[in-house]
Design a protein around this nucleic acid. Structure first.
Lengths: 238, 238
DNA sequence: AAAGTATGAGTAACTTGTACAACAAATTAT
DNA sequence: ATAATTTGTTGTACAAGTTACTCATACTTT
């Protein structure tokens, strides 16, 4: 790792000469939720040209793997995570988007639960950033990230995907904080409660919050874990 | 054209040997509106394996063109059309989706106005099919097409894209027929009228239908042609 | 002339979304 | 212990949007 392993564009080009007629990659926007903020996992760029910039986790697609399998592999390799929520967002392919050559990239976003699955970060250079306090991003990754945030914002009103970002059991307050972080707005407590119960996504966990410095709230869990998987499988395709 | 020009997979593979580590293509789902039905433009497959099947219009992406420019080029080459509405939908990349090798394809849909722009179909083997009466499709093109129809259905309630499918001036009845064809449902005349006027998309053309076998209706046109372009430019990216 | 079909306009019932009040339960400060 | 504060919980009033529905008029066909 570190600077010893940093490559020049020329090195990368020669290592991938055949690929670089048109190389094909996958990039992952990995969302997590800490301290009432929506965060993204970023990697310190290993290109000299982008020494102080950060980038999304990505890799070239292998010849023997399905496109939709590539982001799972990348997440597994980089974070040790299995069975994460992934959805394809869009494909970016401007000629000059990568300084090393022609790279078309398909972008996925992922929602992971940071508290329950402790990440085995294989890389020292991986770090979480709140989406409101981003560092300088390499390539067109800023534009990509904004596209993913917008997609996520559109999604959470219609489908029960946010639960992938929370621990098994959570309070309504935590859930509302999450919605507020994603949508970047304040919501009315009472209306939020009403809406969520109408959605019929929640089941009472018959437990209360512990060790909180205020009146403990009831804990809930996602109603049907099985249904989540069905829905996510469909939405990844779509 | 015809059978003389049909290629075997082996021929295609050898012609594109370098590309076929992973080849990268674009496919276009081209929607038109005839006789109160939503139609798609399909091409008789030139692969022997798919002799009696039809496929979407597609081509490999050139090394020197932006990804989002490729579908414009393809439409121009195949139909002579300029300035069409295009939106990226999704990217398909299963290993086995193309029998000739590994091909990842980004799919766009296009909305074109069949009446005003007469197509110069370069190919005898191009033909329109109602989406309700599709022939056998090659590759995974049936799945791709369904994905595009769903995307279009979601879109027309929120943004004024349907006008790309109609002539400059049209009656409310024609517009409603179009919505009904896309959504595959019947709509209430009065509520449709109310909703459309609320959207504020229509301007009175101060003309009436001509030569119709019933009471002629008023003609309307899209309120702001300039706005259409702004919106479509955004949506293609998104 | 009569029948059929399409345009065009308005209203009531219902559903959904938003703004806001009041109280109870637990914690913290005095 | 008491008061003040924070959070959880339940409900109401109003606005906005959606859905269902009836009638009169204009034109064409028979």
């Amino acid at each position: 790792m570190g600077t010893a392993n940093q490559k020049t564009i020329q090195q990368i080009q020669s290592e991938n000469r055949e690929f670089f007629r048109i190389a094909f990659s996958v990039d992952c926007v990995i969302f997590g939720f800490h301290k009432n903020e929506l965060n993204v996992l970023l990697l310190k760029s290993d290109l000299e040209e982008f020494k102080d910039k950060w980038s999304l986790l990505g890799d070239l697609v292998r010849t023997d793997e399905n496109l939709d399998d590539a982001p799972y592999r990348i997440l597994k390799e980089r974070t040790g995570l299995n069975d994460v929520f992934l959805e394809q967002v869009s494909t970016f392919g401007n000629i000059d988007r990568h300084p090393a050559g022609r790279v078309i990239t398909t972008v996925y976003y992922s929602l992971i639960n940071v508290k329950d699955h402790l990440l085995r970060l294989q890389h020292q250079e991986l770090s979480w950033f709140p989406v409101t306090k981003l560092p300088q991003l390499a390539f067109d990754h800023y534009e990509i990230l904004q596209t993913c945030i917008k997609k996520l914002q559109d999604k959470i009103d219609k489908e029960p995907v946010v639960f992938n970002l929370l621990p098994e059991k959570f309070s309504l307050r935590e859930l509302q904080n999450l919605y507020e972080a994603i949508l970047d707005t304040k919501l009315d407590r009472r209306n939020f409660r009403k809406k969520l119960f109408l959605m019929d996504w929640l089941a009472d966990a018959n437990e209360m919050e512990q060790d909180v410095p205020h009146r403990p709230g009831k804990l809930y869990q996602y109603r049907n874990k099985a249904l989540v998987n069905i829905i996510t499988a469909q939405t990844v395709v779509q």
